[in-house]
Every structure is written in structure tokens, then in C-alpha cells.
Design a protein around this nucleic acid. Structure first.
Lengths: 335, 335
DNA sequence: CTGAAAGCGCTTACAG
DNA sequence: CTGAAAGCGCTTACAG
């Protein structure tokens, strides 16, 4: 394969001139520059990225994408959506995408990758909750962006959806449809950040519409179908059951629907909105809060590349993206 | 970050000695070697992959994975499955994974990637039917493997499922269950390689069990739900309708099921087997031929890495993987 | 058993 | 406006 030496020789100039011309730098005569570029194209010359990277930043123009190991979580749709989003930005900015994941807890693959000089920055999806890795990256002043809020004690750049607002919007839409008895089911302890934000948005919506917050309308489970059934059974047993339900996960919502059926009711009897939108929610026709993963991915990539461009240490930045309510046939105005 | 120079100085040896020790080459005293390795660990030394790559193969230990642009085809599940499979092998062999796709027809990103020296080999999934790219790779003697049969006129290594055998097995299983009137619906012209192989397996199974091949039991559509309905309606109108049906796509099978319902029948009345297995087939409970994408991915990666190891030109290799019939509630013995 | 030197392909001050 | 030289971090013959 042609090297810059070949191009220089063929064009009858020095290697330095060739380099300058091909990078659009220095002050060469238009004539020489044109000749060099023409020669490079004719020889199918493409600069060796390794040599270039070695001499400039000591790194190659690559962003590393760290995801959970495929098959360990339910993320195929989200996963491809994210890769597509990051790829779009990466292509535009002439970066390559390197894909990787830790094999287990406490793995050092991410740090090894950084030390080896292959990547100029990292985007993390569903971070390993391994705070050490992030701390080490901070110490190295190495650019990275999380596609979610960071774990406790980590100060860094991130892009995430506004969960408070999402829950607020969902609740308000139910209130506007005439509901006043609205339940909230969390797939895990309210203390978890995501749940806590959503719960808070739910509560704010109620209060700002003068609806009193009622603990019996809040259920906490573990996010599976069984939990959804249990929640619905509990709510139906109340003297004044909720007329609308917010489910913290798709499986919760599906469990609720099934429980409705078992009680001789169906989706026309209760309004249900679920986090998050997914093909599952879609196929069940459940109204859902759509998390724009593709947008989050793109913004993360843009933010990362911007940070890579900075030579000095800069303060972390955060971007909050709006979620969007998708109304399907489980959204019923109160009768 | 520590370089080999730092390690050498700290350990009080020459750079060459350090390199030798860290790569387990040369003949150093056990003592020196141990001291060097200990020092490297203490300094968190990790060789700069670019410098190493530049001086050895002119390339970095990375395999490129070329997929269709995310979002353009229905492949999230398959896509993540493949990335997981390739990643498993890559990790094991200490290779990085670079992900990329062409933006449009006639793109040159793949070739540019190769010329830039970032990847040592490529795995293609659903190849762009851009024969030029493969020809160019062949000219460069650059290692690559297709995760499917190659397009006409391309001589290369590939890993794929045995479609003839898959259709044969599916048909035989129906025959063994007592069916003799078995239909075959193709999602596209029989001339297409995949369809042709499957049709051929179907036909062979019939013949080898002394069932005559009947053209009226074969339908050709375009693979969507509408086609499935049309096929079923046609088959039901026959004087002797088939008792078992092989559908060339999930949507075809779903269309068939819906048509059955419209005719007042259901899945207990006809045996249906579809290509390929997918969450869609699973959620509809349709018996399906499972294509082991994960295995194909792993075998492709292994084959590629093996080829990367060869310095001389070697003949392409092909690996054929068996498919597997998954029996669900649309598989009914004839009554 | 170990060190000095050349070189991988590039870029970038520095002279002229 | 252009060329000679140094250097990025590593490996690998080649001397000693």
C-alpha cells in the first residue's frame, strides 16, 4: 500500500511537503499542492492512522463505546439504537467506533483500553457501577461521557432524560383527562435515583393540581409481571381504587393488564401509562413514556467529541433531554 | 502515562531488555525479567498499541465488524447477538472490535478503514451487495469473512447455515408427524439463493419419503402478512388443502395464522413452521427454524483470526452450521 | 546474557 | 515557498 514517501517521490517533492499538502497546512504553491493531492488520489493513498496517531495525540481518532455484555440484559433494541446514534455522529466527525464491555465486576479492560492509546474518549451506556474506573479516568483527565446519571460520588459529564419531568407530564396528562385517583408503581426502592425522580415528578404534578398525595396509591415491587399483578390486586381492593395507573416498567404494566383480565375488566376500564416505551409496550398497546435513546446517544457523542477537542481540563457538562408521552389504547379518559 | 522508557530506566535496564522481558522473548536472566515485569506493573505500564502496531504488522489488533446501518433493517436482536458472539472470541484472543457500516451504495469507508491500518481483518454481516469492495479486498489479500454466502462471483471465506438441510429437517418432521400434504411458501422468487436452497431441501424431503411434489402446494409472495393471508386463502381453496405449511418468513406465518382465524380455524387445525426463529415467532407461538446467529458469529471470528495469523495467501474456507427446529404450539400432528 | 542502533509512517518546528 | 532532521513509542536483528 502506498505511503506518504511514495506519494512524495512520485510527485517529486519532499515528504514534508506532501504531508503539508495533504493536511491543508503550510504555504505551498497551489500548483504543488494540487499535484500532490492528485498523485495521492491516483496512488489510492490513505495515511496510516497508527503513524499519524502516534506522532500527534498518541491516540487514534476512535471513540470507545462501553455497553453491558450482550445477552446479559434486555437491551437489543436500545443497544442498536444507541450504536446507530453514536455512529451517525462519529461518522460525521471522522471518528471510528470501538465496542467493548467488561467481562465481570472489577474488570480493568476499560482502563487498559485507555492506556493502550487506542481510544480518545469513551461513552458509557449503563455503566458498570464500578466507581473506581470513573475515578481513574478522572485522575488521567481522560474524556468520557455517561449516557445516564453517574453513580454517587462521581463527578463527570452525562446526558440523560429528565425523569422528574417525564413523570410530571404523564401524571398531568392523566389529570387533564379527568383522573384524580392516580397510582404510582415503582419497579424498585424509591431511593433509587430513577425511581426517586419519577416519584417526585408524580408527586409534584398531584400537588400542583391540588390532588392530595395518598400513600396507598403507591406500590413498590421488583418490576416483573408478578409484581404488576400484585399491585393491581392491591389497588382494586381499595375502597376507592385508582382510575389511572403509572407503571414503572413494561412488565409491571403487562402484569397489571393481566390482573385486570382476571378480575373481569380490561384496558378500557383503567388508564395505564408505563415507563419506558419499547416494542413490548407497543405490541400490548400500552401508553408509554418514550425515552429518546437515539437522541441521548447522539448528544453524548457530540459532547464527548467536543471534550476531546479541549486540551485543558474543563468542567463536566450535563445535558437533559425531554421524554415524550406516547398515547395508545390503554389511555382512557375517566368516564 | 508510563512508557517502556520509564520502565527500563526505573528497572535499570535497556529499553530493548524491557521490551524483550515484557513480550516474553529473548533470553534474559529470570531475575532481570522478574524485576522488569514487577516494575511495569508498579508503573501501570501498558504498551502503546499504536507504536506496537506500527512497528510490527503496521496494524493494530482490531477486527472490523461491518453491519447494515442500524435502523435500516429489522436486526436488533440478531445484531446484538452477533456483536456478543464476535466479542466473546475477540476478547479471548485479545482483539478489539471496531464497528462500522457503509452510508450508502458504492461507499468506500470499508476500504478506507483497511488502508488506514486500523483493522487486521473484517467480518461482514449482510454484506452490501457491493462486489467491488470484496474484489478490492481480494486484490490486497486482506483477510475477511462473510456471515452469509457470498454474492455471485466473489470467492471468499464464509460461515452460514445449511438452508437445504434446515428445510429438509422441517419437512421430515412434518412427514413423521403424519402429514403428506405439506405446502411451501417463499417470501421471494425461488431463484434467490436462500429460497432456492430451502425449496430444494423441501423437495428432497418429499421425494425421499415418496410423496410427490405438487406445484399447487407452493406459493411465492413477498414475505409480508398480506402474502401470508393470500397464501393461506389459496391453500384453503384447494380441493385437498395442505395439512401442514412451511412459511419462509415470520410475517408470512403470522398472516397465515390470521387468515386461519378469519376462516374460523386456528393453530390447532394446521401445522405451521416458519423461518427464522425470532422473538416474534416466539410470542406468536409459531414453530420455527432457529438460525444460530451467535454460533455463526463466533465461528466467523475464529476463522478470521486464524486467517489473520497466516502470512502467506491461503485458500478461502467455508463453515456450514446446522439449524435447529423449535417446536411450539403451531406444530400439530395430523389427526 | 544485554546494549546501541535502525526503522515502522507520519508531523512539525526549524533553517534556508 | 520548500527541504533536512528530530521524534512519537515501540520491536528486532546485530554486536559484543
Amino acid at each position: 500500500m502506498a505511503t506518504i514517501k511514495d506519494v512524495a517521490k512520485e510527485a517529486g517533492v519532499s515528504i514534508a511537503a506532501a504531508s503539508l499538502a495533504l493536511n491543508g497546512k503550510g504555504s505551498l504553491s497551489e500548483e504543488t499542492r494540487a499535484k500532490i493531492i492528485e498523485t495521492a488520489e491516483r496512488l489510492n493513498y490513505k495515511p496510516n492512522a497508527l503513524a499519524k496517531g502516534l506522532v500527534t495525540s498518541n491516540k487514534i481518532n476512535t471513540i470507545g463505546i462501553i455497553i453491558p455484555k450482550p445477552g446479559t440484559e434486555f437491551l437489543p433494541f436500545v443497544g442498536m439504537d444507541i450504536l446507530g446514534g453514536i455512529g451517525e455522529v462519529a461518522n460525521e466527525k471522522k471518528y471510528n467506533m470501538l465496542l467493548d464491555w467488561e467481562e465481570g465486576l472489577g474488570g480493568t479492560k476499560v482502563l487498559d483500553l485507555v492506556r493502550s492509546g487506542i481510544v480518545r474518549g469513551l461513552v458509557f451506556f449503563l455503566p458498570l457501577n464500578d466507581v473506581t474506573t470513573f475515578r481513574a479516568l478522572n485522575d488521567l483527565n481522560f474524556p468520557y461521557v455517561l449516557m445516564s446519571r453517574p453513580p454517587e460520588g462521581v463527578y463527570c459529564s452525562w446526558v440523560d432524560v429528565d425523569n422528574v419531568d417525564a413523570a410530571y407530564q404523564a401524571t398531568v396528562s392523566l389529570i387533564k383527562a379527568g383522573h384524580t385517583r392516580i397510582s404510582f408503581s415503582s419497579p424498585g426502592p424509591i431511593e433509587f435515583l430513577v425511581s426517586s425522580d419519577r416519584h417526585s415528578g408524580y408527586r409534584q404534578a398531584l400537588l400542583s393540581h391540588n390532588i392530595s398525595y395518598d400513600e396507598s396509591y403507591v406500590s413498590i415491587g421488583n418490576g416483573d409481571i408478578q409484581s404488576g399483578k400484585a399491585a393491581m390486586t392491591h389497588f382494586l381492593s381499595l375502597k376507592e381504587p385508582p382510575t389511572a395507573l403509572i407503571a414503572g416498567s413494561n412488565l409491571l404494566a403487562i402484569g397489571m393488564l393481566e390482573s385486570l383480565k382476571e378480575h373481569g375488566l380490561d384496558h378500557r376500564d383503567k388508564a395505564i401509562i408505563t415507563f419506558d416505551d419499547s416494542p413490548l409496550a407497543e405490541s400490548y398497546g400500552i401508553s408509554a413514556i418514550h425515552i429518546p435513546t437515539n437522541t441521548i446517544a447522539k448528544e453524548s457523542a457530540r459532547l464527548l467529541i467536543k471534550r476531546i477537542g479541549h486540551t485543558r481540563r474543563v468542567e463536566p457538562e450535563n445535558i437533559v433531554i425531554d421524554a415524550q408521552l406516547i398515547v395508545r389504547n390503554t389511555f382512557v379518559p375517566v368516564r
